[in-house]
Design a protein around this nucleic acid. Structure first.
Length: 1027
RNA sequence: GGGCGAUUAGCUCAGUUGGUUAGAGCGCUACGUUGACAUCGUAGAGGUCACAGAUUCGAAUUCUGUAUCGCCCACCA
């Protein structure tokens, strides 16, 4: 006997093991089949997967499983990402917390070793999560962005770009994390608003001429940076700049609503005052700049020029701006434009260097204080205002970010970006939903060079060796020697002049890892670069590096380009765009044909899920509570085309298993008292031994309960089928001879198969899940199974019914399998025992539904008339149920029913009379056009179908209840009639709306009127009878 | 500041090209357990489709504006 619940806890692991041990997920080069390939977006090994990964990987598995069943050689390539800075930061933070050591204390090798240990641990955890979700990856091929295969690809790519002169060394202002001592990318910086001050300084003018100001006022929120100032800028044409601002304000004023007007008017007024007060002065300064006049930078006691540059905004502050090219991104741009020196005042650890010896060794806050005090002592300090300051913080170390000038390696993006834009504009790569194209194209359109070096120890080390020489000849000489060490497909060299220091840098790039050339290059006096590559560099190669490139492997030939990529929108630029351009550069072919951008899961408060907020959900917790199929089905139902989806989350009380809504308050507390059982449970924040002593509550979402119930429904419907397959004999099914309900089922199967197949191709996951849910529950279970009950009890009908129902269940299992692989696989094996051969033309079902063929949409089974007729049957059943409910007739009672209907409906309903019993507790007394009401009658009309259902209430009548029902019905009908009448009496509607719409309205009004009349008659009769 | 998106029942969401009475699940109410399933069944209540205009015979749906929320990008000496 099959248990009445699907025990996922024990079944799932067994099933997964069978898949894996039978190689069900493996894909091999197979010229007889078309390939279908997905590469997994490699999860970071920083930590465990959350529900966002759960969603993305569910979708990829649905695609992979569907295509596999459709006869493709389906490869889902698994792997993980080393995630450079994120992983190193996690391990460094632990090192600091647990052992109070920094990475410099233990050294590069030891740190990297520790990170590998971390990686091994989390990679295992991640793979465990994916496997429990049922992900049908080809696990034999598991890759890691730092493994030898990927490393080879990275080296080959870097070498190629280097040789093409697409890689260059340049200074660049980077976001410097003084704790980790590395540059971090923009997306790893978050801004926080803090209280600070806005300081006004005066810089003396050197030898002012008569009529010239003797000082220039500037302002800053970061006083210490003045030590690195190399100019003060003033706008080259302040009058024109002010005009432009003014006309912009006036334009806004013209368009503005009442609310903004006063504010804008005030701004224009202020601007006019400024013009009067300051324009002459600014123009004088501009002339002085043109004249090459200099200022004395206080404290540093250095002469700096006054320059004319449009970065200075005459409408702001004093109209003058200090320029610190080495410590501010905008000033850096000015510095480049104006050929200003760039003076770095910081050490890598964030203390001041010896540029201005008096401040050497001070931290930034100390230096800030000192600079302000020293300027005040010299009477050069003006006002100090309070102001909110946006402060950049490093995501990883939570310490302040300093803009810092450093040597970095860049990839020139001009050509590469263009190629990736073209691939999308000409639709070789399609992005779904299409609205995301714009962001991709806009970002690439900027063609900003890609800084690829990171001052980290965890990653692909940059394969460049360098040395600096004072003479170009010397550099050339060594370069020649270096090149002669190997062939030009293994070693490449380039010389870059450093004008500032009048030196020459020699850069040598080696293509192969651990090549004997390394030692030889080093013997020439060259030193290897300390930096590693941006983690996205190796990720960008993922679709081809995982297939063995640069080797021309069979896999690469067969599986590349891949088919679809599913990912989240925040990495469309960072990752997707770069995969496209690298694929085109390395293989001259796009990496994938379709990109699906899935929605982001937010919690019930509309916030992104994250571990640091406490609202993150581990898919494993959901699987433990609801099962893997429920997790997957729930996530699939969530995947609409919107950009965000909400999923309220709860704590599951470990004591009473109740789900407790998360609030912003409780989700960050170490312990929470359960409102249901009042026992205390702990959360991820528990740190003290005392807190940890309470059982920990997993974070889940009750939304998966619906899906769990659906799994149960499917399980039990299948159980019913299985219990009734005794004596099953596989026989061909003669469709033409089947009764209506069987042909209805076949027709519906054809439609559903078609809709599901198309939906998956179009990434309409929520829709597909909805279609299957509705069909399985409301049609297969609620109607077909109910109808099958009497037929299975009838020896004459049993055989054919068994054949049809087995076929129906078989098809349903196949269609559901990609979404709910475990329960379908389990049922499949039970079904295989009782009905090993099944179908319209019975064929042997294989051992695994996972490897079964996808159902064909059998269009010839679609029959509009049958579906319409069956809908009539469903309506009639519904009408009887409504009458029963309004009369509170006990379920055990059987009610006599008559149905007035057309001849054709009669022909349909006649053979289905037997099913009224199990579906509506009714016995059909008479059918057809001539049917009369019962003496004590409860009628219900179905006007759209021209059907009237009558229930004999002789034994049951509750006059009051019946009057209430009829009056309510009458009210509804009258309301509709009023609406229709007013619509039809509208001359405009009648004359302008299409004739068929008007005709439909008229017909519908007529129906309603006759319905009203008959209800009124019924009410009258009932009143007479009761009085 | 620029871009993208959302706003429909108490909650989470559907709603195709404008056209009968705007749907589903959860929750709620009432009734119901001798066999597929109480993780169930049947019925019911519940909506000024964010707001204001415009187009149209007709708008949840098209257009304009407003408000609120979210995300991405840029930026504020």
């Amino acid at each position: 006997m099959i248990p009445n619940r699907f025990d996922h806890a024990t079944a799932a692991e067994e099933i997964a093991n069978k898949w894996y041990s039978n190689g069900c997920c493996d894909a091999n080069v197979n010229p007889d089949k078309k390939p279908y390939t997905i590469v997994i977006p490699p999860p970071n090994v920083t930590g465990a997967l959350h529900l966002g990964h759960g969603l993305n990987n569910t979708l990829q598995d649905i695609l992979t499983r569907t295509k596999r069943m459709q006869g493709y050689e389906a490869l889902w390539m698994p792997g993980t990402d080393h995630a450079g800075i994120a992983t190193q930061a996690v391990v460094e933070r632990r090192l600091k917390e647990q052992e109070n050591l920094t990475r410099h204390d233990i050294g590069r090798e030891a740190l990297v070793e520790r990170i590998w240990a971390w990686k091994d641990q989390y990679e295992q955890r991640i793979i465990g999560q994916l496997k429990r979700m049922g992900c049908s990856c080809d696990w034999r091929r598991l890759r890691f962005t730092l493994d030898p295969m990927c490393a080879t690809a990275v080296r080959a790519t870097f070498f190629d770009l280097f040789k093409k002169d697409l890689i260059y060394r340049g200074k660049r202002l980077v976001n410097w994390d003084t704790f980790l001592q590395t540059a971090v990318s923009n997306d790893e910086v978050e801004n926080v608003t803090k209280k600070g001050h806005f300081y006004h300084f005066r810089y003396p003018v050197i030898d002012p001429k008569p009529g010239e100001p003797d000082h220039v006022e500037i302002a800053t929120t970061r006083p210490e940076t003045m030590l690195g100032d190399t100019a003060v800028a003033v706008h080259p044409d302040p009058a024109a700049a002010l005009d432009k601002v003014e006309s912009e304000l006036k334009r806004k004023l013209a368009e503005a609503g009442e609310k903004e007007r006063p504010e804008l008017e005030k701004q224009i007024e202020v601007l006019a005052e400024r013009r009067t007060a300051m324009l002459p002065q600014l123009e004088r300064l501009r002339d002085m700049a043109a004249d090459g006049r200099k200022l004395m930078l206080p404290l540093a006691e250095r002469e700096i020029p006054l320059v004319a540059d449009q970065w200075a905004k005459p409408e702001l502050g004093s109209g003058c701006v200090k320029i610190t090219p080495a410590h501010d991104p905008n000033d850096y741009e000015v510095g480049l434009r104006q050929s200003l020196p760039m003076i770095n005042i910081l050490n890598p650890d964030g203390t001041l260097n010896g540029t201005v010896p008096a401040y050497e060794g001070l931290t930034i806050p100390q230096a800030r204080k000192q600079v302000v005090a020293d300027l005040e002592a010299r009477d050069l300090l003006g006002d100090v205002e309070d102001r909110d300051i946006e402060m950049p913080l490093s995501d990883r170390s939570k310490t302040a970010i300093e803009p810092y000038l450093a040597d970095q390696w860049f990839v020139a993006m001009d050509q590469l970006a263009q190629s990736a834009m073209d691939a999308v504009t000409d639709d070789r790569v399609q992005i779904f939903p299409t609205r995301y194209r714009k962001g991709y194209l806009d970002w690439l359109g900027e063609k900003r060079d890609w800084p690829v070096s990171r001052q980290l120890w965890w990653g692909h080390r940059i394969p460049i060796w360098s040395a600096t020489y004072e003479s170009e000849n010397k550099a050339r000489e060594i370069a020649t020697k270096a090149k002669s060490l190997g062939t030009n497909d293994l070693i490449s060299a380039t010389i870059q002049a450093d004008e500032e220091n009048a030196t020459f840098h020699l850069f040598v790039c080696l293509r192969e890892e651990e090549s004997p050339l390394e030692a030889k290059v080093e013997a020439l006096g060259l030193v290897r670069d300390e930096d590693v590559l941006d983690t996205w560099f190796s990720s960008a190669l993922w679709p081809h590096s995982t297939l063995g490139w640069p080797e021309q492997t069979d896999e690469l030939e067969y599986f590349y380009p891949t088919s679809s990529l599913s990912t989240s929108r925040d990495i469309i630029t960072l990752w997707v765009a770069r995969m496209v351009l690298m694929g085109l550069n390395n293989i001259h072919e796009i990496p994938f044909q379709e990109v699906f951008i899935h929605p982001t899961i937010l919690d019930g408060n509309g916030e992104r899920m994250s571990k640091s907020k406490g609202n993150g959900v581990d898919p494993i917790d959901v699987i433990d509570k609801f099962g893997p199929d429920a997790l997957r089905f729930g996530l699939t139902r969530l995947t609409t085309e919107t950009q965000d989806v909400r999923l309220p989350v709860q704590f599951e009380c470990p004591h009473c298993e109740k789900l407790i809504d998360q609030t912003k308050k409780n989700r960050t507390s170490p312990t929470v008292p359960c409102p249901a059982c009042s026992k205390v449970f702990s959360t991820q924040w528990a740190e003290t031994e005392e807190d940890k002593a309470h059982a920990k509550a997993p974070v889940v979402s009750e939304k998966f309960e619906v899906s769990r119930n659906f799994v149960n429904k499917l399980w039990n419907a299948s159980r019913f089928v299985l219990m009734n397959l005794e004596g099953y004999e596989a026989k061909p099914i003669d469709v033409a001879s089947l009764p209506v309900e069987d042909r209805w089922l076949l027709s519906r199967l054809a439609t559903v198969t078609d809709e599901v197949t198309r939906g998956i191709d179009e990434f309409k996951f929520a829709e597909v899940a909805g279609i299957l849910y509705d069909f399985a529950w409301n049609e297969f279970c609620s109607f077909y199974v109910e109808i099958a009950k009497p037929r299975l009890a009838d020896d004459a009908l049993r055989g054919v019914t068994q054949n049809v129902i087995a076929h129906g269940l078989d098809t349903l299992l196949r269609l559901l399998h990609p979404i709910m692989p475990f329960v379908t696989e389990s049922i499949w094996s039970y079904l295989g025992e009782l009905a090993p051969s099944r179908g319209l033309k019975p064929t042997a079902a294989g051992e695994f539904v996972m490897l079964a063929s996808w159902p064909e949409c059998q269009r010839e089974h679609y029959d509009q008339d049958i579906e319409r007729q069956f809908a009539e049957f469903q309506e009639v059943i519904g009408a009887v149920r409504k009458i029963r409910a309004s009369q509170s007739i006990a379920p055990k009672e059987t009610v006599p029913v008559s149905v007035r209907c057309s001849d054709s409906s009669q022909a349909l309903l006649e053979p289905m009379k037997a099913y009224f019993g199990s579906l509506a507790g009714a016995e059909v007394m008479s059918l057809g056009p001539a049917v009369q009401p019962f003496a004590t009658d409860a009628p219900l009309a179905i006007p759209a179908m021209d059907i009237e259902v009558h229930v004999d209430l002789e034994k049951f009548i509750d006059v009051e209840a019946e009057l209430t029902r009829l009056e309510k019905l009458l009210g509804q009908v009258v309301k509709q009639i009023t609406g229709k009448e007013s619509k039809l009496s509208n001359e405009n509607f009648v004359s302008r709306a299409p004739a068929d719409v008007v005709e439909k309205e008229r017909a519908s009004l007529n129906d309603l009127v006759s319905q009203r009349d008959s209800i009124e008659v019924d009410i009258k009769k009932l009143r007479e009878k009761s009085s």
